[in-house]
Design a protein around this nucleic acid. Structure first.
Lengths: 349, 349
DNA sequence: CGTTGAGCGTGAAACGTTTCATCAACGAGG
DNA sequence: CCTCGTTGATGAAACGTTTCACGCTCAACG
């Protein structure tokens, strides 16, 4: 047994068939095999069939690394998610995947989990893979790594975040408007003391929603002190519960009659805390969330929420990056979607 | 301007620096650059620094395609998820990613969405990428495509499913035991008429949980007719609501006092339907779910659920595939985890 | 009959790495 | 002074594709 055969047996992994193998089996040149693969019209019916037959017999699978190396570009996009455990982002991811698949591109999903170091590693990996483009919901939209990547030639689109006055594609939702819609709704329903639950305020999202909320409040001519800002450490269910306790701890005079939460996870936590401590929703406390994830509508008291067009966000992001990679005179674009209030029982009673 | 420069300018994407560029800038050979990259100990301190400097200046990023082509293998795993919108699977995915990262492997996440055709496409793509191994929660565990892939040399581990008497690695959870635990708990709590909500029964999971449930029922010597099987079309929140209506529609004599749902999504839907139509949980209807996703604990009436070690499932799957690819005398293994009942208010009152 | 032009196929070069046999330089030991 | 071994660097081959400039064949046409 020669060395090659030995190592092959040991590895247990037979060398996959290559175009060369297919070519010799079909009695043609490798160039022809490649033509069958890439421009079937350039090759006669008869030989095409012979080659395809050989491929089937050998179980030929095209080696994408080699293809990519020669062609100089890959057929794949990547989306770096901020938090895979938040259904909002998985929906965005599915929108991206769909749109990419329609353009016969494959999508790699990665996951930073809000950790900047991890995000860096993921990006490095993707750059090494020479993906066509990177879609990302960054931990920090201002981060320089994004610029470095772009400087090296990989296209990047920012998803669900924006960058001030920058020349980069992004898709996002008008969070200030969302905040306004939420608070206007609460004011319409007669609430005159309202809590804004969210944080940390280092997140642009949170800042904008808060800004919209307080703007609506001022516009209605209500006293500034009666819009209470309750800061949270994260946008999680736990923190929602904590916020609920803090609200319960306030004196009756100061206690808000409604809460606007910066996302649905917070709202669900708050809802749970309220209900389990015997407060009625919305009579004792009205609650409004943000994102309108599936679980918001599924809560025991269905949650009013500000809906973002999640799938569409993803689809548009994919469209933008495809344009950027294909179209020589691509113009950077910041698409801003309009959120929509979905009123349910948690504010309607 | 020559043609190369023109097309380069037009594409707007400068050709990234290669080892050759780095080599000439550092005044060494390409072999040396490669050594710096792969066995830094083989190269003197001085040249190493020179090369690293050159890399930094040129913004060199290793081309993974070329690396892979030459080395014959990739540094990546893939997980094909069944349903990204179910938090259970994202948790499993995170477990896989963590374990893979620890072994300095990157992970590609794909998503079949329960669609066999889509699954096939994804698998084909992954095979073309020559990933080291594929982890998959298959649409149909019995499908032949899995065998074909393995026959061609790519290792596969089945996640959260099993295959009868087959020689393939898998990780799963003892669903029959889970079903038993759930129903025993309900019997303990005094329930004598119980519904099993789940379907379709073509899913192994559902069958096993049902089997465990009816076994526990028989073992307690209770009349078979009093364990009612309510079939659903899918394992979704919607279907949970439908099941709730069906339960409500039963005559008082026949109506169960508790429901065991085949997953948490169903349970949440059922819970919502019950609560919004004025039934009290657990007094009028006790509910128990399966998976113990985060939203189960976060429900207004916190859900009793059967917990599966999700992260650990993922980690173990990753461990298995790494062993299979690295260890020449790897033995196939079917790891079965033990589920655990987490009792909360939806059954405790 | 000679020329032309499709229509098909060919073969070699190139993509960016890694690997490996080889070589140069140099110090130690005889 | 010669030989050896060690250390560090080199250069060419190889991985599996795609691409492209050529050929070959044959039918049509002048």
């Amino acid at each position: 047994m020669n060395r090659a055969a030995m190592s092959r047996a040991k590895a247990g992994r037979p060398r996959p068939a290559s175009v060369k193998d297919v070519a010799s089996r079909a009695g043609v040149s490798v160039g022809t095999v490649s033509n069958v693969l890439n421009r079937p019209d350039r090759v006669s019916e008869a030989t095409r069939q012979r080659v395809e037959q050989a491929m089937a017999e050998l179980g030929f699978i095209r080696n994408e690394s080699a293809r990519q190396l020669r062609a100089g570009k890959s057929r794949s996009l990547a989306y770096v998610m901020l938090d895979a455990s938040n259904p909002f982002f998985t929906d965005v991811a599915m929108g991206i995947e769909d749109a990419a698949a329609r353009a016969s591109m494959s999508t790699f999903l990665c996951h930073s989990g809000g950790d900047a170091a991890r995000e860096r590693t993921q990006l490095q990996l993707l750059e090494q893979q020479r993906v066509q483009g990177i879609l990302i919901t960054p931990v920090d939209p201002g981060s320089a790594v994004i610029d470095e990547i772009r400087a090296r030639g990989t296209h990047v689109v920012i998803v669900d975040r924006t960058r001030q006055g920058d020349t980069i594609c992004s898709v996002s939702v008008d969070d200030e408007l969302g905040g306004r819609l939420a608070v206007e709704h609460l004011i319409d329903r007669g609430h005159r003391r309202v809590a804004f639950v969210g944080g940390p305020h280092s997140i642009g999202q949170v800042r904008d929603r808060w800004a919209g909320a307080s703007e609506a409040w001022r516009a209605a001519g209500l006293p500034e002190d009666d819009l209470v800002r309750l800061d949270t450490e994260r946008l999680s269910v736990d923190e929602g519960r904590v916020a609920g306790q803090r609200i319960a701890g306030l004196s009756t005079r100061r206690r808000p009659t409604a809460a606007f939460c910066a996302n649905d996870l917070l709202a669900l936590g708050l809802l749970q805390q309220a209900v389990t401590t015997g407060r009625r929703v919305p009579d004792d406390l009205a609650i409004i969330g943000y994102d309108d994830i599936e679980f918001a509508a599924a809560a025991a008291v269905p949650l009013t929420s500000v809906r973002q067009p999640r799938q569409q966000l993803g689809e548009t992001a994919a469209r933008l990056i495809l344009d950027e990679t294909d179209n020589p005179d691509h113009q950077h674009e910041s698409v801003v979607f309009t959120p929509e209030l979905v009123a349910r029982r948690s504010t309607l009673g």
